[in-house]
Design a protein around this nucleic acid. Structure first.
Lengths: 199, 199
DNA sequence: AAGCTTGGTTGACATGTGTCTACTAGGTTG
DNA sequence: CAACCTAGTAGACACATGTCAACCAAGCTT
């Protein structure tokens, strides 16, 4: 029926990935059918399963691509103040969350159990943590470990809060941003003070 | 086949719940079949679906029951020191997590997207937060809001860390417990005037 | 042009969830 | 005892994921 065009595996994979990205962004995970992905790509279901072992794997590949792009697009300008950098970083990420609502919710809820999704997220959080650590003014290298732990837990907290916000809209977007930035600054204050009198 | 015993809806529901609890504790969510639950209860699949609208609902009911029991069994003895209470509370919860591994993982990963599971967890965390707030020595009532926010974020952090630990076993059990307790004490130290550790 | 490799199709099958309809059989009530 | 309400059964169906075997055809090679 269809003019059956023969592509290289890489090209076909990229095409399927693009179709998947479009559909997973447009609708919730469960509402996207493999049949549909194949159909929109003008391809048989069997071929789709040849390139991706399953629906989870297809989504994981889509999500990995999105995560890579997000990380690449959110380079902080080191000229600004720390607060400025945090605010800008949060804004970019919140833009991404709202634009890719369905995909973010699928990754964090429906597919949170998938080990592949797990590792993609872990890697993303690790990259963000390294970036933040590099941007933070460490007073003492011995504080590095403690700060790293705080940053890691803060990233988890932010992620949980953002996902919750996507569902329940418990506050305004600027409020959410300020809560996140404020909580990190508050958590870091006792660690970054010149004189750690409280500790 | 079976001598078809007729029970009241409440009794039947309780029986199905018990069977579900046993199976969901023994094996991962996806490996437990509705057919199987019905069979073990000596009942038809249709009847199971009459009492619980779907597999998610059955699991949610099982999980709700377990959460209620856990909350009921973990009453802190107010006589001990704060650190003692935290350590004991963590120990009880870690016992529960390791004993109900599969159910906890299902709730936090496979079914994390289910709104019913969501609300069960939210309620459980809220109850724990209220309990902790009551046990904490608040120096000033104006600090209450800040402490509440710290406790809430800490509970999320602990939960995430514990689920991660169930999968990856990144450290020993006492270590995990001490990390959690230590992080809360560290986060609270700048907020609480009196020495909460009593050490 | 013949042939081979490999991208791609077709259609049938297996399994699990969830729905529905018609039927069967306890136990209470008149 | 008979009627009736309702717990429970039987089994077919719809639908989605995932597997498989046989086949077809594009386009490189020789």
């Amino acid at each position: 029926m269809s003019p059956r065009q023969r592509l290289t595996p890489a090209d076909r994979r990229a095409q399927l990935l693009a179709v998947g990205a479009r559909l997973f962004a447009a609708r919730p995970y469960d509402d996207v059918l493999m049949e549909e992905v194949a159909q929109e790509a003008g391809v048989s279901r069997a071929l789709l399963y040849r390139h991706f072992p399953g629906k989870h794997a297809l989504f994981a590949a889509v999500y990995q691509q999105a995560a890579d792009r997000l990380l690449a697009e959110t380079r902080l300008a080191p000229a600004d103040s720390l607060v400025e950098q945090l605010v800008q970083g949060m804004d970019v990420h919140l833009d991404y969350f709202t634009a890719n609502r369905n995909a973010v919710l699928a990754a964090n809820r429906v597919l949170a159990g998938d080990p592949v999704i797990q590792s993609i997220m872990t890697n993303e959080l690790d990259a963000l943590r390294a970036r933040l650590l590099a941007a933070l003014p460490l007073p003492d290298d011995s504080a590095r470990e403690a700060v790293s732990a705080v940053v890691k837990s803060w990233l988890v907290f932010v992620q949980v809060l953002c996902v919750d916000w996507l569902i329940r809209e418990t506050c305004s977007r600027p409020q959410l941003r300020d809560i996140c930035v404020g909580s990190l600054l508050g958590a870091l204050r006792p660690l970054l003070a010149e004189d750690p009198a409280g500790a």
